[in-house]
Design a protein around this nucleic acid. Structure first.
Lengths: 169, 169
DNA sequence: GACGAAAAATTCGCTAGCGAAATACTATCG
DNA sequence: CGATAGTATTTCGCTAGCGAATTTTTCGTC
């Protein structure tokens, strides 16, 4: 008898009590497990951020600003899109980072609607500190898989992400 | 040359610009893809909820209240734990549902600290309507995988969830 | 060149959720 | 039995993020 996780029990409760409502075991299993894992990863990211006295949103924003083809430089709209938050939310995040002196806003030359967000030397230092300090919880989670399982998981997950990315916005 | 998803490009940017910062391609791939997929699933759930004039939080709460060994009956703490939100957040959600007449709060007999949340007939009706109306976006996403890939994905994801569930709280 | 549509960033008013604190209740231990 | 620790729920003050609206600028068409 293989061990059960929370999702197995959730799916069993559906089966036991609501036979009139159609659902697919496998779909529900995948969807629920992805949700559970993502929640855990979110918690580990909050802890990693906190280890450098950052909020998760600060950590994510700095990281997305640095890991790009133009490291340390991006428009608010690009950042919002990559981080999958609204423009209004992005403005709020940037206001907070600007206040702390980690970024600055510069008007774009080629298009006066545009703002360019640039990391400051202080912001770079904060981000590097956070990267050095980020912990190993993700690595440890994925370490519970074999090398082969990791490759397989990435391959299958990528089929899903390619599907999602093929959809119109 | 296999197609690239957003995560491939993200990982490439890391490699191209920050060789001094250690990371593991496979880990980053898995973690990022799970995040992307979960975000998409969240969006589909919001749309499914909206199809029945529900907020996502309302939809999730009603669903968790119904899909349990005691369908339609649970304590706030149990619901909060299963939904992975704080007790304070759970109180807010329940206040909103109670206001709409979809649930009621009953004092527990065996333990006066406890409240029992019970679904009302109206709440059951709303939930059934939402389930009937929930759309097929999840099914369609997972339909991009073969049967074998689905089973494999569930098996590997379950290894991760079992690891997470083995950790102390 | 004029006009309307689209785009970029921000503002505004609102909501969901958080952590800490508060209150009441229950369990355990000496 | 009394004191203490732990538990369940809610309240409180705060924050991040949302959708809609706003303002300015750019683009495309005639």
């Amino acid at each position: 008898m293989p061990p059960e996780d929370w999702t197995d029990r959730h799916v069993a409760r559906w089966r036991d009590h609501w036979s009139g409502i159609t659902y697919d075991d496998q779909v529900e299993g995948i969807v629920t497990r992805i949700g559970q894992i993502d929640h855990y990863l979110g918690e580990t990211m909050k802890r990693a951020a906190a280890a450098s006295d950052l909020q998760e949103s600060e950590y994510k924003t700095l990281h997305e600003l640095m890991i790009r083809d133009t490291p340390g430089s991006a428009s608010p709209g690009e950042l919002a899109e990559d981080l999958k938050i609204s423009g209004a939310g992005m403005t709020g995040r940037l206001d907070a980072l600007e206040k702390k002196g980690w970024i600055r806003r510069v008007s774009a030359i080629d298009d006066r609607r545009r703002v360019i967000i640039q990391i400051t030397p202080k912001g770079t230092e904060v981000w590097r500190g956070a990267m050095a300090n980020r912990g190993t919880a993700e690595d440890e989670l994925i370490a519970s898989l074999t090398d082969r399982e990791r490759a397989t998981l990435n391959r299958i997950l990528k089929k899903l992400t390619l599907y999602i990315e093929s959809l119109p916005d």
